[in-house]
Design a protein around this nucleic acid. Sequence first.
DNA 1: TGGCGACTGGTCAAATTTGACTACGAGGAT
DNA 2: ATCCTCGTAGTCAAATTTGACCAGTCGCCA
Lengths: 204, 204
Amino acid sequence: MSAIRLLVLGAVKQHGRAHGYQVRNDLEYWGAHEWSHAKPGSIYHALKQMAKQGLLHAHEVAPSAVGGPPRVEYELTESGTEEYFALLREALTTYDQKMDVLSAGIGFIVDLPRKEAAELLRRRVRALDEWRTAVTEYYTPEGGPGQLGHIGEIMHMWVHSADAGKEWTLGLIERIEGGAYVFAGEGDPFVGVLAEGEENPYAT
Amino acid sequence: MSAIRLLVLGAVKQHGRAHGYQVRNDLEYWGAHEWSHAKPGSIYHALKQMAKQGLLHAHEVAPSAVGGPPRVEYELTESGTEEYFALLREALTTYDQKMDVLSAGIGFIVDLPRKEAAELLRRRVRALDEWRTAVTEYYTPEGGPGQLGHIGEIMHMWVHSADAGKEWTLGLIERIEGGAYVFAGEGDPFVGVLAEGEENPYAT
DNA sequence: TGGCGACTGGTCAAATTTGACTACGAGGAT
DNA sequence: ATCCTCGTAGTCAAATTTGACCAGTCGCCA
């Protein structure tokens, strides 16, 4: 899974209805251009693709209000919402060493109920443990680790990184269960999109 | 940069001359199918592409010795060797959160002189520091970090991961400078490929 | 009043990646 | 003899990603 679909669905969802450029801008606002590699082409492609798949409903082109070509507005369909939550849950649980996917997941984590969020992160911890085991077993074959030479360093790196990931995840779980942040169904949600016309303070 | 080109060049280089299936097999032997996502298609594609670019020389098809279609053997050209070292150096220095690239780099690090290897890793540490600074600055705008809500967790994760990466890198530098492993020009190199006919103990 | 650059909203071709599929021979089971 | 399956070596179409480019409009400065 690449992070783009989740990011795009999430952005559209927060707006309720958005056109490509708004999504593009939100991603930049969130700093996503730093950690995901979401280029314009990918964003527009994802929008069209998901519209074709029925995850988004494309509203007829509106004559652009501020110059430039006409624009298409998108809105989540029911199956789009399902897909969004499926991707979100997957992003938070699976360990596939894609930090950008995880980042996107964290960005939207408050769309879930607090309890579920913590539960998913605990699943993530288990996935990390499994990965760690798999790595150490793979790299510790019959003859002992001696014969590996510098190749053992690769394993060492993965283990180190899995441990760091676990530590961070446990910290987050603790904060969440300690009552931090506002989750789904707990009142005014945190809004992290740019309003129409608001300028982006982090523009390049 | 994706890891594939480096991986493929490195595999061919260690063999001296290799066909696609050998490369494919070596990558599996190294466990690369676990951390890089090097599928057959990508490998064959990379071989052809790099042959077209003059990085590899494609020897005429040899009638397969053991059944199956005829196979093409590849060999590094001079510019292929240059490219290999360029990719290798880049993989070791730049921090683009692509663990697979770094893994590949570590796998081939002993092709460099010991001194250079350490120097490149030190550059990597500097890159990590810069990334850390960039992240904290981006996420700590005028109003203080309070207004970020859960979005601050993304920053927290990146910082945590950068710190872990730095720690691991420093450890590796220490081991290298302490005399571990056999680097370029220091005698019999470590050989990590499967010989013709040797079976892969880690096959799926 | 016209030229310039920046911003807006996107398109497009080329490169890459993915995942499924093919074809061939060896070796054993039937 | 025939069938079946496995390993070998690789192809191919479809999906995705990348990076470059395009065409309007606005403000503004001279």
